[in-house]
Structures are given as C-alpha cells and as structure tokens.
Amino acid sequence: MDSLKAVIISIILLLLAHQVDMLPWWGFIIPLFIFGVLINYLKWNVAGFSVGFIAGFLLWAGANVYYDIQYDGLILQKVALLFSLPKIVVFLIAGIIGGLLAGLAMYSGKGLFSYRAASPVLED
C-alpha cells in the first residue's frame, strides 16, 4: 500500500515540478529527492529507486504519449525516423530516462537520510 501511495505522490510531485518553467530541464528531480528524504520520516516501507523509477517512467512515457495524441503526432514520428526506430521505442526510451532520473533522485534522498540516521547507531 505504501508503495502505491508513494508512486502516486511521486507522480503528482513530478507533474507539479514540470509546470515550473523557471527550473532547468532536470529540475524536476529536486522535489523527488526531498520526498525520498521525507519517506524515512513517514516510515513507509518502500524501495526508493523502484518507486521513483515507476513514477518517472509512467510520467515521461505517459506524457509523451498524451502530447503526441493531443498534437498531430508528427514530431515524434520524425524523431523516431531520425533514429530508425518504431515510435513506441521512443516512448519507452523516454520512459526509461525519466524513470532512471526519478529513481536515482528518490534513492539518493532516501539513502542520504537513512545513512545519517544510521550513523549514531554505528558509533555505539
């Protein structure tokens, strides 16, 4: 259950971050990193990378599909042609890039905090 919640929240966070035009193109990973940190406080039992990856993948692949359908769909067709790939592969590649970035962000956020939390224990 926690994982599902985390994925949904991650998607919402990513979506919101993408609406901020002022951020650089990779800026969307910042809220996810913070969310990773927060997960430790919430004591949700989730795998940071997987949750981030799934959220990033769904959003990047999904949004590309969404805009592709909403517009004329020509541009990605030509991008696919440029790399001699079927269009579906373009969506998958976009998904994987989005997934990796989001996954790593969340993994680092969560990992950084747990490392700090764990440090005193190690000193004992």
């Binding site: 193109w25 805009y67 517009y71 890039i97």
Partner: peptide
C-alpha cells in the same frame, strides 16, 4: 525526450 519541454512540445500547433 522530456515530455513537458522537449521534442514532443514542438508538435504544439495550437
């Protein structure tokens, strides 16, 4: 690839 500012947005002819 980034769906919100990347290539797919150049399909916007609104």
């Amino acid at each position: 690839m980034q769906p919100f500012v990347g290539a797919v947005q150049n399909g916007n002819n609104q």
